[in-house]
Design a protein around this nucleic acid. Sequence first.
DNA 1: CAATGATCCTGTCCGC
DNA 2: TGCGGACAGGATCATT
Length: 267
Amino acid sequence: MPELPEVQTVLNGVCQVLNGRQVLSIVSYYPGTVIWDEALDSHPFPADFISGMRRGKYMILHFSKDVSLIVHLRMTGKLVFETALIDIHRHERARIELDDGSALRFIDPRTFGKITVINTENLEKFLPQLGPEPLGKDFTPQYLYQKTRLRSAPIKNLLLDQSIVAGLGNIYTCELLYRAGVRPQRISKSITHKEANLIIRHSKEILMEAIAVGGTSISDYRQVDDKRGEFQNFLKIYQKKLCPLGHDVENIRLAGRSSFFCPKCQK
DNA sequence: CAATGATCCTGTCCGC
DNA sequence: TGCGGACAGGATCATT
């Protein structure tokens, strides 16, 4: 599922494709996939691509004429580049048409993904409240420790809360807690300074490793050129029966999600 | 305010 | 071979 490393990888590909191009139009094939800001100019396109950035799991694409796109892939969304117009794919929910006849197709079987077209000035208004970037300087052991003091929910739920830290999802949270040696169901308040240190260090480490190999392709996730990421080959606990040391892995449900952990390696 | 559970949705997989 | 049900889970909304 697209988490920070997958979104970053897709964004990098999208920026390459959009570099020097104009968007001519955004076509919607499924109700609710494309959301239009009411405060938008009535004829926003064509607009020149300026820059792309990422905030948590959101892609933000800036264009001329104060137009921006907020793209969220949710669980099964893909942005696939085509050099020429072709038939609408069964799961194609929207299409971003470019000035050279190419297009980015938004393919999303489960239809949870969204493309929001906004006036750039309204960016803050259209983004939810998001915590610090996990790879940023504000995501520190002190910050996390302070947040854990206020909560009785399991630490995994806290890490999945985008208003606490923006970009972690189920897979990397399972993995980083395994690396940190902390059980996902541990009550947040019980996390020690030392454990907060380990969680922060391994969060940053695992995200950087995953970005370096193009993310994790477990089911639908693909890069813009339809290539798979490679990090699924390095997962140690997610959907495993045995941990790397050969211990039995347990799977419990936390916040409605499968949570894999090793009772021997994680305390 | 915190925490939990339902909801959105469809493809895939498992057991019978 | 077919069918029903469980499952996958990011974010939002309603409820406790």
